[in-house]
Amino acid sequence: MERVAKGIAVVVQVAVIVIVVIWDIWAIVVAFAGGWLPVPWPWYTEGGIGFGLLWLFILAPAITAGAVTLVSWILGLIAAPFIAVANRR
């Protein structure tokens, strides 16, 4: 049971990392080139070097940190009952 749980944890971690990396690259390219940013609210930008640098060094790290924290909390809440059942045995 413990090996299965560790395997699932690794798969979920890799999936989250891949999704975050793809999102970051997509958002940074759009910030420099212009277009619709991949955020939950509609945000169109003309792009440019200034906005690209702002996004690259300030906005993307802040949004990414918040999103990763939120996902880890959600996954922890989902996993908590399973961990409790596994520890009961």
Rank of each mutant, 00 (worst) to 15 (best):
E2L: 04
E2F: 12
R3P: 01
R3Y: 09
V4I: 14
V4M: 05
A5F: 10
K6F: 08
K6T: 07
G7R: 13
G7V: 11
I8T: 03
I8K: 13
A9Q: 01
A9S: 07
A9R: 03
V11A: 02
V11H: 00
Q13R: 08
V14S: 03
A15V: 07
A15Y: 09
I19W: 01
V21C: 08
I22Y: 02
W26P: 02
W26V: 06
W26T: 03
A27S: 05
A27G: 01
V29R: 11
F32W: 03
G35V: 12
P38D: 08
P38A: 10
P38C: 06
W41N: 12
W41H: 12
W43C: 01
Y44Q: 14
T45E: 08
T45N: 10
T45I: 03
E46S: 10
G47V: 09
I49E: 05
I49S: 11
I49G: 00
F51R: 04
F51I: 00
L54W: 12
W55G: 01
F57H: 05
I58A: 10
L59S: 02
L59P: 10
P61N: 04
T64W: 10
A65W: 14
A65V: 13
A67C: 11
V68G: 00
V71I: 14
I74Q: 00
G76Y: 09
G76W: 01
L77S: 15
A79R: 12
A80I: 06
P81T: 05
A84R: 15
A84T: 15
A86G: 06
N87P: 01
N87E: 10
R88V: 14
